[in-house]
């Protein structure tokens, strides 16, 4: 995907284009912003622009030349994409980056290394990377991507030029999603995505939401299965919070158009009748509080019992 196909990051892209044009690329970038908003796409777009054999006047890659095609396929000899292995970016991977950069460019363009989820660099990898970040061999660019840059060592972040990405406007998300989904589904997904199309585009979110609602319908009497992974737990709480939000909005306004889960209107109406507005607000606040604690290794089955109880009774347990 070239710059011209990327939606919602016009500001960032025009800055990147400017640095290419003036030939003033830094040693390393760090692309920060929430998950699923297009940081990696932009990084690859930059790699393409730096290697394109037929670059346009406004510094955008053509997307058609062999170089662009190879980057798209992930087989370009001068582009390396590094991802965490088993939850970490290991020291060997950093050594591999150093070796990769030690050669001159195969095709004569720029060597680009994209480190995705850079916050997964373990302490020794991060330290090993410092030398390369500070003084990479000629003709190289490192792009770190992170949704939580604050947990990276300051020594790493301070060596990179920081570029912040914001979530996309709803219209842009809808346009991206409508390339793949029909109108109705694109609308639903774009509402669910919170401006992060990358999160919903693989359909996992949709499946999780269906499961959440199915589970919820059976919550009375049915034994809930605790989550196996943290991701599933995060998503469950996101869905629960989103449902509370809808109920509260519906109770306060009575306007169906403002709902996110508009396909579940019947269920939301039924839920809304069970308690008062304040109680729902309390539940929502409590769910939000738990969401904030999820990173701290909560016991999964206790958490589930508690959250399930909250939704079932519609009453907030005093904490």
């Amino acid at each position: 995907m070239s710059f011209k196909d990327i939606r919602g990051h016009d500001g960032v892209i025009s800055i990147l284009k400017g640095t290419i044009k003036k030939g003033r690329l830094p040693n390393a970038y760090i692309f920060t912003g929430q998950d699923g908003i297009g940081k990696r796409l932009t990084a690859l777009g930059l790699a393409k622009a730096l290697n394109c054999q037929d670059i346009s006047d406004d510094m955008d890659a053509c997307g058609r030349c062999p170089s662009c095609k190879r980057i798209e396929k992930g087989v370009h000899p001068d582009t390396l994409i590094v991802e965490p292995e088993g939850g970490q970016i290991l020291l060997e991977q950093v050594r591999a980056i150093e070796e990769f950069l030690s050669f001159k460019a195969y095709e004569g363009g720029m060597k680009v290394v994209v480190i995705d989820d850079a916050e997964k660099l373990n302490p020794s990898s991060a330290n090993a990377l410092l030398k390369t970040l500070e003084e990479p061999p000629a003709g190289s660019l490192l792009i770190l991507i992170s949704s939580i840059p604050d947990i990276l060592p300051a020594t790493v972040v301070s060596r990179c030029h920081r570029v912040n990405f914001s979530p996309l406007p709803a219209d842009d998300v809808r346009e991206i999603l409508s390339r793949r989904f029909d109108n109705e589904k694109a609308r639903l997904l774009s509402l669910l995505s919170e401006g992060r199309p990358g999160l919903v585009i693989d359909g996992v979110q949709m499946e999780e939401r269906e499961r959440f609602f199915n589970e919820l319908r059976g919550i009375e009497g049915l034994e809930l299965e605790p989550w196996k992974e943290r991701d599933a737990m995060d998503m469950w709480f996101k869905n629960a919070y989103c449902l509370m939000r809808d109920i509260v909005v519906y109770k306060a306004t009575g306007d169906e158009k403002l709902l996110i889960n508009f396909d579940k209107i019947a269920y939301i109406k039924a839920m809304a009748d069970r308690c008062g507005l304040h109680q729902f607000l309390d539940i929502a606040n409590e769910l939000d509080r738990i969401t904030g604690l999820l990173r701290f290794n909560l016991n999964k089955s206790i958490t589930l019992c508690y959250a399930g109880l909250l939704l079932k009774t519609g009453e907030c347990v005093d904490s």
């Binding site: 950069l101 030690s102 001159k104 061999p137 000629a138």
Partner: peptide
């Protein structure tokens, strides 16, 4: 003759 061997160089 007809055999061609190429190598990338080391940067630096």
């Amino acid at each position: 003759d007809e055999v061609l061997f190429t190598s990338r160089l080391i940067e630096g």
